[in-house]
Nucleic acid binder design. Structure first.
Lengths: 210, 210
DNA sequence: TGCGATGTCGAACACGATGTCCGAGTATGG
DNA sequence: CCATACTCGGACATCGTGTTCGACATCGCA
């Protein structure tokens, strides 16, 4: 299959490690294939024997991470989970445990390729999760809009967190996310009878500054 | 200063128009300088006489838009604005009016360069706006976290909207944003006495699906 | 242990895109 | 009308990419 020959494993490992090490240093965009080759001490043709290009190598690393995350999520699936280890929390916890990789993949210096992939992944997750709740409540809230909102919010938080070097802890971050995200959705799931009052606070613009 | 010579204006206009027209077709990343030159029917050296590279040209267009948006925001500043034309609504309205540009700058095919710039811009806006409210309420909510959350949520919604070809209308979108964003922040501004109960709904993962 | 298969190396190569330079021509503002 | 400043277009050096090839090493398997 894939991991049979020791030489193959070795080459792929060296290349992946080189890339991950390089990203925080130069930023993904500025990294050249030659940089990776030099760092990994691997021949040029070897690289192209395994990966189509730089993105391919990066996404291979992403897929590993993705599989790993999926396992974590599946592991805590029995019924509705209680407070501390909720799935979003699990994502943050996973990011925390795999700090080294997330720094390369989700940080500011990471490639937008992974960002897009990750956005898709989480977006699908949210859509599938939200739809039944919204439909059950008979809400007029469009599923896609809600999914876009919460996906971007969660990933934005994640990216910010990574760039902050994972400070505050994963539990604290998950808690904050809950506090900010939950009430809005719960309110939106209520029958669309009462129009919620507009708030200047969430508008993102001070009325009279400058 | 800048807009004196008619030839200069002409060249810059042609180049900007060419780029904006090209982005939805090929996607920003795949566009080459030569593509822009061909489309604009402008000489190579003329391009480099005005812009350092492709990104520079794109960001010049962004800055124009940024100025334009700022004017809109400043225009509706007297006191706390009422419902329909709230600042976030103004951003969506602005995007709607400048559909053509936003499609190129904020859409899926747009460059991540602009995305990052825009994120910074809105993030600063949110930070400045949220800080006094949070401090006044004596909340333990970190300003930066909240700013990251709402910035990403708003921009995520915007990007999604652009790619949906601006359907639903700007007012409807702004309304949904309000419904989802406001309650969470209002709740978080309350004294941190009562721990909000965790919700499985906002977790983005169904407890038992496959 | 030995053998065929497979992976690696390194150099050379074609290609495409970038950014610079310069001379000759042309439109512009004053 | 003229000096200035912009444009043109081609040539050029440079860089990164992805491919190819033969020689060599290392592997899995019998």
């Amino acid at each position: 299959m894939s991991g049979q020959d020791r030489r193959v494993r070795r080459s792929q490992r060296l290349l992946r490690e080189a890339l991950v090490a390089l990203i925080p240093e130069k930023g993904y965009d500025r990294i050249t294939v030659q940089d990776i080759l030099d760092r990994a001490d691997v021949g040029r043709s070897t690289f192209y024997a395994h990966y189509r290009d730089k993105d391919d190598l990066l996404l291979a690393g992403f897929d590993d991470l993705r599989t790993d995350l999926q396992r974590d999520l599946d592991a805590l699936s029995p019924g509705v989970p209680p407070h501390p280890t909720s799935p979003t929390g699990a994502i943050f916890a996973h990011a925390y445990r795999r700090r080294h990789l997330y720094r390369a993949l989700c940080g500011r210096r990471g490639g937008s390729v992974v960002q897009r992939r990750l956005h898709r992944l989480v977006s699908d997750l949210f859509r599938a999760h939200l739809r039944p709740h919204i439909e059950a409540a008979g809400s007029d809230l469009p599923v896609d809009v809600a999914a876009a909102f919460y996906t971007s919010a969660a990933l934005g938080l994640l990216t910010w967190w990574v760039d902050q070097d994972f400070r505050p802890g994963p539990a604290a971050l998950a808690s904050i996310y809950q506090r900010l995200a939950a009430p809005g959705l719960l309110a939106a799931l209520a029958p669309p009878a009462s129009e919620p009052p507009p708030s200047a606070i969430t508008d993102g613009h001070t009325g009279s500054d400058k």
